[in-house]
């Protein structure tokens, strides 16, 4: 399955809905999307990963890259994920301490640091 991406604006947040598989082949598409959003001035991102079937270290690298970009503009990057198999990858790499991970888009959009 390929990667699907769609974006929408909720208040001052931009929600990126990701679906499919994020791996070495598809991760560049996600990177391009995040770079484009930041270049266009969207610094508060919510990446909704509920539709993601597979995520590997390349995908993690892209998300970390996105986080660095928004932080350079004092922005934020929050994740929405309830899938245990995806959350496990964040846990074993210690990235649960780096990304705020929420159970719903509403919760992520409402969250403040």
């Amino acid at each position: 399955m390929d990667l699907s991406l769609s974006t929408r604006t909720v208040g001052d947040r931009t929600v990126v809905e990701v679906g499919g598989e994020i791996d070495v082949y598809t991760a560049p598409k996600l990177r391009e999307q995040l770079v484009e959003l930041v270049n266009d001035g969207s610094y508060h991102l919510v990446v909704d990963m509920e539709g993601v079937d597979f995520l590997d270290s390349t995908g993690l690298g892209v998300l970390v890259g996105g986080l660095k970009r928004v932080r350079a503009h004092e922005g934020s990057l929050r994740l929405v994920c309830n899938q245990e198999r995806i959350l496990k990858i964040f846990r074993i790499t210690g990235l649960t301490k780096v990304f705020p991970i929420h159970t719903s888009v509403d919760e992520a959009v409402a969250a403040t640091d």
Binding site: V24, R31, G65
Partner: peptide, 11 residues
């Protein structure tokens, strides 16, 4: 090859 490293370079 896409990687976290590529992001760092871009940054």
């Amino acid at each position: 090859v896409p990687s976290a490293r590529a992001d760092e370079e871009a940054m």
